[in-house]
Design a protein around this nucleic acid. Structure first.
Length: 436
DNA sequence: CCTCCACAGGAAGCGCAGGAGT
DNA sequence: ACTCCTGCGCTTCCTGTGGAGG
């Protein structure tokens, strides 16, 4: 009885907290949505040239001609996605207007985030499942009913091709496929490029063009030269924003997202300076939002410098924690093994006499095997392990360099990208284990 | 020079999960 | 309920590579 009452009052308190938080939220924030990385504002400062270039590239669709494929490279938070979405929105508005769309061009664009659709098959499915392709004149629309399902297996790839072909052909459609984070397509990227370009040879009306985006130049090295040249008919590079540009971007969002007078210019400059190291606008916005949240938390009527400092710390922790805890189990075990190695690595250091925190592939594999044993997992083979290492490096969670002089042959030095203590803590929490 | 070591990473194939068709 | 088919993660087998040591 007593406990129940306690629990109830605890719950009451939670609800009350939430409600009052909502109110205090309003003291700082005006509209949190404009701070989201997915928000595409009406004006995109400092990307005017990029917008014209993208527009020029895709404009031929208005004459029912196939535009060049476009590859956009730029680090995270340089506005790639934003610019492309922006142009697509404008294009869509233009096409909707019968007065402007004098050729009656049927234009559709499908946005695919390859981080989620990470294989050729999933990308094709996503394109076909897109509501804008689901033309009611098509009898063959069985995909629509299953749009909610997790995925469609058991359909032959050639059938996927046929369906895509039919949709485009029957509508004389100018289809623009936007492949964001194209470097995340692990399986069959070359194949995908081949399919999406070859379709144009078979089509008697309509066309398919591709806009690929990536923040990793290495994707080009992995690609077949032929699919590389088809994708890169046009190439663009988005440069990182400088502190000044970030400041005006932040100002724009502050005006819409925050109550007036809550954030001083000095605060904006500070956030811009932090984010300018990578020229990353997304990071800047995240800092801005977090600083605001901390101000709410601290019951402050304004956002202060100390809130920004705190926000920086928390955002960085969040980013790492999110990256690690969404990883598959064995990837996390590899990180865990590495973090343990660092904290008790003296023995290995004496043996190998290399930089502190650097370990050879063999050592890390051995540690990984041990961790698996203690966690009751079956260790994967070295071959698989090698892929884990590559994937972890791609995510920046570990840093590898190939062994130079003084070490035997063709191996790599592996080190953690972040503090081992922190990595250890995150993995333990994520996998629900206690220190081995 | 050759050979060995310790590894990187390509190719093939296997078993599984799960949707489609019957 | 059943088979058939697919993608996917994985293992097995294999070839390539660069320094160390003979």
């Amino acid at each position: 009885m007593f406990i129940e009452e306690n629990a109830e009052s605890l719950m009451d308190k939670n609800v009350e907290d939430l409600l009052s938080k909502e109110l205090s939220d309003r003291r700082i924030f005006l509209d949190k949505r404009v701070l989201s990385p997915h928000y595409v504002p009406k004006e995109l400062p400092h990307r005017e040239k990029e917008i014209t270039d993208v527009t020029r590239t895709i404009a031929p669709v208005l004459r029912n001609e196939k535009p060049s494929n476009l590859f956009i490279y730029g680090k995270t938070g340089t506005g790639k996605t934003c610019v492309v979405k922006y142009v697509m929105r404008k294009l869509n508005e233009f096409v909707q207007d019968p007065k402007k769309n004098i050729n009656n061009a049927v234009v559709r664009s499908v946005y695919v985030n390859c981080k989620i659709r990470d294989s050729k098959y999933k990308v094709l499915l996503k394109v076909l499942e897109d509501p804008s392709l689901n033309d009611p004149t098509l009898k063959d629309v069985p995909l629509k009913d299953r749009a909610h399902s997790k995925g469609l297996m058991g359909i032959e790839p050639s059938e996927l091709y046929d369906r895509l072909f039919n949709v485009v052909e029957k509508n004389g459609m100018n289809l623009i496929i936007i492949l964001d984070e194209i470097d995340m397509v692990r399986k069959g990227l070359d194949d995908l490029m081949y399919i999406l370009t070859r379709i144009n040879d078979d089509l008697s009306s309509g066309n398919v063009s591709i806009i690929g985006m990536s923040n990793d130049m290495r994707v080009m090295r992995r690609m077949d030269p032929r699919s590389k040249s088809t994708l890169c008919e046009e190439e663009m590079i988005f440069k990182p924003y400088n502190a000044l540009q970030l400041r005006s971007i932040l100002k724009q969002r502050v005006e819409k997202g925050f109550q007036p007078g809550v954030i001083d210019d000095a605060i904006i400059s500070r956030i811009a300076a932090f984010a300018a190291q990578d020229g990353d606008a997304r990071y800047a916005l995240r800092l801005l939002q977090k600083a605001g949240e901390i101000a709410v938390e601290k019951n402050s009527s304004k956002v202060l410098q100390e809130h920004v400092e705190e926000a920086k710390k928390r955002v960085e922790e969040d980013i790492i924690a999110e990256a690690i805890s969404t990883l598959p189990e064995h990837h996390q075990v590899v990180l865990y093994a590495l973090s343990l190695l660092v904290s008790c690595g003296g023995f290995y250091r004496r043996l190998n006499d290399v930089g502190d925190g650097d370990f050879l592939t063999g050592e890390v594999y051995e540690a990984y095997e041990n961790c698996c044993k203690k966690l009751g997992l079956r260790p994967r083979t070295t071959r698989q392990f090698s892929d884990y290492i590559n994937e972890l490096e791609m995510l920046g969670l570990i840093i590898t360099r190939s062994s130079g002089k003084g070490q035997r042959g063709n191996t790599r030095f592996i080190r953690l990208g972040y503090s081992p203590k922190e990595v250890k803590k995150i993995v333990e929490k994520s996998l629900g284990i206690s220190t081995i």
